[in-house]
Amino acid sequence: MEDNVILRIGAKILIPFILMFALYVQFHGDYGPGGGFQAGVIFAAAFILYALIYGVDTAKRVLPLRFAWFCGALGVWIYAGVGVVTLFMGAEFLNYNVLRHDPEHGQELGILLVELGVLTTVFGVMVAIFYMFAARRQVR
């Protein structure tokens, strides 16, 4: 697909908007439908589109497979880390009330961080799985 001018230019125009939309879904999840999971999938879709149009090797220079793995693990770390932090601040695991002085703000911060963890894991895992399938194809 690398010679197809319309696809290349179209993807180039679309990808920034896809990334922006993913971030919108992530940070607007408090007010409308959406959240870390959906945002992570959309974010990954942008990179998968890039890999489909420009080739997996080019995409790997932007986002190495190792980094995708790292993201996949980091997200779980962030999520569980928030829980451990609340433990040390004297509440139950994942009770965000104590993160700030005001419980409501604490909840908001906690949800933001946790959703960030979900986003990171989903994004990393989706891209990593796609890379691994694609790498398999090249070997054959």
Binding site: G83, L94, G117, T121, V125
Partner: peptide, 19 residues
């Protein structure tokens, strides 16, 4: 993310396990 935070953490771990 809050009331059922444990569940969502489990789901995140499941996705990680899939990878």
């Amino acid at each position: 993310a809050s009331y059922r935070g444990y569940d969502t953490m489990g789901e995140t771990t499941v996705i990680f396990t899939a990878m």
